[in-house]
Design a protein around this nucleic acid. Structure first.
Lengths: 195, 195
DNA sequence: CAAAATCATTCACATAGGTTAACAAATCCC
DNA sequence: GGGATTTGTTAACCTATGTGAATGATTTTG
């Protein structure tokens, strides 16, 4: 059924029952997006947060020089959206774009709050998730500060091997914080070393 | 009085009364640290979060190559500590060291939770603060990705001019993510441009 | 199916910042 | 007060990554 992935995922962090998950799904808007479609853009209000039930997206920012920087990719079982914009009512500074056809379970603020309130285990999950996301960001910053692009590439390869099958390489480069040409060069050097 | 700075600071974000602040201060442990003293170190449990009533500290991490990376400096009116370690019960990955003699208002988990619960305006303040801190981290990461060290230096100079009076230059370099020699070079180049 | 758009690779050259080492200045501390 | 430590500067050289441009390959789309 439709809630299966969500259920399995939540279960891993928090003792939640199938009924609770069904209830959670009940609060959601089930939405589909086409490839390349934007869920929101920089300067808009990010009205929803959502669970990726199917598909792949990128969450990114455009800097003053007009260059993209991918904050992260989201695939199945990821939650995505700008929680801060969501709660602060400020326009978001990010873009969220589908890279594949996506099926999402979306929550506007009201639905999300209600779900958190009515399903305490879910609230607990959100808090844990939030803390982990914060950690992950710091870790990424540290990695940017102290590792070479090659190391970052290798770690990504290890951590999310699937991503390489789903996302064009120049977007991987953007995620790693380098130019596509540089990634190409790194891959070439690596293949030379191997052999 | 002792609560003055805290009161003035909180008032700026949230409508809080002097009584509430006195109550908040009542829950705190008032602690003094000597220059160079560590409040906690990587691998320990970060038992406290605290408000800097007086002094200056650095919050940093040591990477695999044994190099320091300063996440941020904290001076008067900053809150500091590892909230995640605090709530997750996991050992912290950070070091917190006084760079000057410090007076801190410290809260262990119990005191902090109690304060949040008993003083709703304070709880509101903590939430806002938390969201802002998350944003600030992302902004810093973006800055690392898309700006030169010189730009980052200039922005720091603009945003926290005081820091330069209080903190040795090689720590500023660590915060900017460069070597002390590089900062020296940048400053030299800049002074040449000016004249 | 063909034209257009997107994506990946390679190369030559430019540059920011790292590295090492030496030295000077400032500060700490017995 | 004087030696030890910490801090800042400079210079020469090195390296990772950026830049720009050319070329194919692949994918999208009418």
């Amino acid at each position: 059924m439709r809630h299966q992935l969500l259920f399995n995922h939540l279960k891993q962090t928090v003792p939640i029952s199938e009924e609770e998950v069904l209830k959670l799904l009940d609060y959601a808007l089930i939405k589909n997006y086409r490839k390349k479609e934007y869920l929101f853009m920089q300067g808009e209000f990010a009205k929803y947060v959502g669970f990726v039930n199917q598909g792949c997206l990128r969450y990114y920012q455009i800097d003053e020089n007009g260059e993209d920087h991918i904050i992260y990719f989201a695939i199945e079982t990821w939650w995505i959206g700008d929680l801060n914009s969501f709660y602060s009512g400020q326009p978001t500074g990010f873009n969220l774009q589908a890279l594949e056809p996506c099926e999402m379970f979306m929550y506007d603020k009201e639905r999300f709050e209600k779900a958190r309130f009515e399903i305490p285990t879910f609230d607990q999950y959100v808090k844990i998730r939030h803390a982990k996301a914060t950690d992950a960001r710091l870790e990424r910053m540290m990695s940017q500060l102290s590792e070479t692009a090659e190391t970052r590439y290798l770690k990504l390869l290890e951590k999310f091997p699937d991503i390489f099958q789903r996302v064009p390489q120049h977007l991987i480069a953007s995620f790693l914080g380098i130019q596509p040409q540089s990634l190409s060069r790194i891959r070439k050097q690596m293949s030379r070393k191997e052999s």
